[in-house]
Amino acid sequence: MPYKEKEIEKKYFTIGEVAEQLGVATSLIRFWEGEFDIIKPKKNRKGNRQFTKEDIKNVKLIYYLVKERGFTLQGARDFIKNDVEAASNKIELIHSLKNVRNFLVTLKQQLD
């Protein structure tokens, strides 16, 4: 039986990595951190922010509400305040459906 190496999974991400994933400036993420209570990255001894996967999920939720849906900051706060988990699940579902759609469009183009 061949030996399989376990994949190393990162626990913490820098603000630069999070900003790159979303295609936004790091200053915007810092701004959102001050505006929304659900973004609470840990800070190391140097003061650098360390985002967990949960933090990234929350940042993506805010990005979706503000940038893609056009919510105001107050509107996004109210939406999240009602039910963070339900809002997050909706966002994940939407992204999954978009990925399926993109796959199907690509598949159709390849068949034509």
Rank of each mutant, 00 (worst) to 15 (best):
M1K: 01
P2S: 13
P2F: 09
P2G: 02
P2R: 00
Y3I: 11
E5K: 15
K6T: 08
K6G: 02
I8R: 15
E9D: 14
Y12R: 07
Y12T: 13
Y12S: 04
F13S: 08
G16V: 14
E17Q: 15
E17W: 06
E17R: 13
V18W: 04
A19M: 08
Q21H: 02
G23T: 01
A25D: 15
T26Q: 13
L28S: 12
L28H: 08
L28K: 10
I29H: 00
R30W: 07
R30S: 15
W32V: 03
W32G: 08
E33P: 11
E35P: 07
E35M: 06
E35T: 10
F36N: 06
D37K: 08
D37G: 02
I39W: 02
K40H: 09
P41V: 01
P41D: 05
K42M: 07
K43R: 15
N44G: 12
N44Q: 11
R45V: 02
R45K: 12
R45S: 03
K46V: 04
K46Y: 04
G47R: 09
G47W: 12
N48M: 01
Q50V: 08
F51A: 03
T52D: 11
K53W: 07
E54N: 07
D55T: 03
I56W: 01
I56S: 09
I56G: 09
K57P: 09
K60M: 14
K60N: 02
L61S: 00
L61P: 01
I62P: 03
I62V: 08
Y63N: 10
L65E: 06
V66A: 00
V66H: 02
E68W: 02
R69Y: 00
R69T: 09
R69H: 02
R69M: 00
G70E: 00
F71H: 04
T72E: 04
T72H: 01
T72A: 04
L73N: 02
L73G: 06
Q74D: 11
G75W: 07
A76P: 06
R77P: 08
F79L: 05
F79I: 05
F79S: 11
I80E: 02
K81M: 14
N82I: 13
N82A: 03
D83Y: 11
V84K: 14
V84C: 06
E85S: 13
E85V: 12
E85H: 10
A86R: 14
A86Q: 03
N89M: 03
N89L: 14
N89W: 04
K90L: 01
I91R: 02
E92F: 01
E92N: 12
E92Q: 09
L93A: 11
H95Q: 07
S96C: 01
S96E: 04
S96D: 04
L97M: 14
L97K: 13
K98E: 15
N99R: 05
R101V: 11
N102W: 00
F103R: 03
F103W: 00
L104F: 13
L107F: 05
L107G: 02
L107E: 13
K108E: 11
Q110A: 14
Q110C: 09
Q110F: 12
L111M: 14
L111K: 15
L111N: 08
L111R: 04
D112N: 14
